[in-house]
Structure formats: structure tokens, C-alpha cells
């Protein structure tokens, strides 16, 4: 991993009904990290803490190697943010909003902005209130990209979008990281999207990091295991992180398939154990169930 563009070190924040506990991860330049987890796990809180919307209780956040509080302006000039809800001044026109936002970024690229406006079909004279949900997301993405940020923070940006707009959005993100200098941290419930675009996956569950790994390694390590031979159930226990209830202990999930493969090569070959690939949603679900949520 090269020098991280974003680094969280034991970040904690407590609310009356929820706590983010010692969250640590690092995102290298040029990569996309997907932040997944059940509702209320702490994904949005993590992104809002990075944006310095509210103070940390403990820990440290560094963006581009700078302290996120002390160098807030310098950092935000190089960060693009798209939230779940596009919170703009509803009665202002798209053109006015673009002019207003552009004034805060010294490296605003008006030509690129115009290109994005044309590509997304944004009418400059329309008010924000006249835009559909999909168009608002496109406007948010335009505003987030036009200053060519080194880091994009996306908090559930595709929720509520139809598949066509979602696909366009993801395509745009992939183009953004083409030059391998920019990074993206994206939280989403739609794990299919993250499977398509993310290089790293960080799973937050109940306010703590449950895992943080390169996506390919994660999908290689996690498998659904179907045990055909009852006698193997006990022997397989150390490799299984969770067993599906109602399967008579015959179906479980492993997070260390390469090791299981070495230890049970013969049984796998003979079909006494069947390993099936699983997706991010299954992994998220298995971890949440294992930890009681």
C-alpha cells in the first residue's frame, strides 16, 4: 500500500444511543474503498467525522497527511462530498449554485464543470426544486468533481436512484480514478455496486470495524461451506465464523478459505465439502448475524 490519502486512527464518538469505537483504516491514493454495514452501523457518522461536521471524542483523522481539524480548509479544497440527501438551496438555480460553490475552490475547473453539466443534461436555469432525485445527485456530483478533488467522500449517494442513473454514476466514478491519483471512499447499502467498483472493503458493524481488506482477497477468503459429510461438522468448526440456523449445522461461512482448502483438500475434491462463492451482502449478513445484529 502506498502512502494513504486518508487515515483514521482509533476514531471514537459517543452518542446517547450509539457509539463509534476506535475506528481505524487507511485508504491509499488511486483506490476506491467501499464502506458497508447494516443501518445505524456508523458509516455516515464516520464520513461526517472525516468532513469535520462534528468534533472527535478521541483518535485522529489525517487527510493528505494533514490533520482534518487544523487544516480543514486546505483539505476541503481538495475533497468532493456527495451525501445521501442533496442539501442545496432549493429556490436557487443550478447556474447560481455552481457560481456560488465555484467561488470557494481556487482550483475550480469551469471547463470541466461545463462538460459535466452538458453530459448530465443539467439545465442551468432550472431551480434545484425543479430537479428530480437523479438530477440532484448529478448536480451534487458535478459540484463535487468540478474542482478535481483528490479525494471523493460519498455517503450513500446512489440510494433512491433508478438503475440507469446508478450505472451512469458508477461509470463516472470509475473515470475519476483513472489517473490513479484520486481516491474514493463510498458508503452504500447496495453492495452490488461496490463489488463492481471498489478495491477495498471496510465493514462497520455496531460502531466498530469488523473487517478492512482488499475486495478480491475478501471474496477469495470468504466462502459459503456446505458440509455433506456429517462427521466433518466438528472438525470444520475452527474455520467457520457463522452457521446458518436450520441447516443442521451443515451450512456455514468461512473467512479463511485458503487455509480450509489446504486442510481439507481431499474432502473438497471428493465433494464431502462444497465451497460456494459469496458476495459482499452475504459477508455483511454473516458478520452481522454472528455479532448479534
Amino acid at each position: 500500500m502506498n502512502r494513504p490519502i486518508l487515515k483514521l486512527d482509533k476514531v471514537s464518538k459517543t452518542y446517547p444511543d450509539f457509539a463509534l469505537r476506535e475506528v481505524s483504516f487507511a485508504l491509499p491514493a488511486g483506490y476506491i474503498m467501499g464502506l458497508i454495514g447494516p443501518n445505524g452501523a456508523g458509516k455516515s457518522t464516520t464520513i461526517k467525522l472525516i468532513m469535520n461536521f462534528f468534533p472527535l471524542e478521541s483518535g485522529k483523522i489525517e487527510v493528505f497527511g494533514l490533520d482534518h481539524c487544523e487544516e480543514e480548509i486546505k483539505i476541503k479544497q481538495q475533497v468532493g462530498y456527495v451525501g445521501e440527501f442533496q442539501q442545496f438551496y432549493g429556490e436557487m438555480t443550478v447556474g447560481w449554485l455552481i457560481r456560488f460553490v465555484s467561488g470557494f475552490y481556487p482550483n475550480w475547473d469551469q471547463q470541466y464543470c461545463q462538460e459535466l453539466v452538458n453530459r448530465f443534461g443539467l439545465g442551468l436555469n432550472k431551480t434545484v426544486n425543479q430537479l428530480s432525485k437523479g438530477m440532484r445527485v448529478k448536480l451534487a456530483l458535478t459540484l463535487a468533481l468540478a474542482h478535481r478533488p483528490r479525494l471523493l467522500l460519498l455517503d450513500e449517494p446512489t440510494s433512491g436512484l433508478d438503475p440507469v442513473v446508478r450505472k451512469e454514476f458508477l461509470q463516472e466514478l470509475l473515470e475519476v480514478v483513472q489517473d490513479e491519483e484520486r481516491s474514493i471512499l463510498i458508503s452504500s447499502h447496495i453492495t452490488d455496486d461496490l463489488e463492481k467498483i471498489a478495491d477495498y472493503i471496510t465493514l462497520i458493524n455496531q460502531g466498530s470495524i469488523a473487517l478492512c481488506q482488499p475486495k478480491d482477497l475478501l471474496l477469495d477468503s470468504w466462502k459459503k461451506v456446505v458440509i455433506k459429510d456429517r462427521q466433518l461438522i466438528e472438525r470444520l468448526n475452527p474455520w467457520l465464523v457463522y452457521r446458518e440456523p436450520g441447516s443442521n449445522d451443515r451450512v456455514g461461512y468461512t473467512d479463511n478459505f485458503p487455509d480450509l482448502q489446504r486442510s481439507f483438500a481431499l474432502q473438497l475434491a471428493e465433494g464431502q465439502i462444497v465451497a460456494e462463492p459469496i458476495d459482499l451482502a452475504d459477508i455483511m449478513s454473516a458478520i452481522a448475524k454472528r455479532e448479534g445484529k
Binding site: M51, N52, F53, E72, I73, K74, K76, Q77, Y81, G83, F85, Q87, F88, Y89, G90, E91, V101, F104, Y105, V128
Partner: peptide, 18 residues
């Protein structure tokens, strides 16, 4: 009211403004 209705203070906090 304008700031509240559109939750615009959050929007402003996403910009490089203290």
C-alpha cells in the same frame, strides 16, 4: 428558514468554509 428548509448549513459545511 432558508438554511433550515434545505438543511443548507450542512451543505455549507461540505464546502471549504470554517
Amino acid at each position: 428558514y432558508y438554511e433550515d428548509k434545505d438543511n443548507a448549513l450542512t451543505f455549507l459545511r461540505t464546502l471549504p468554509i470554517q
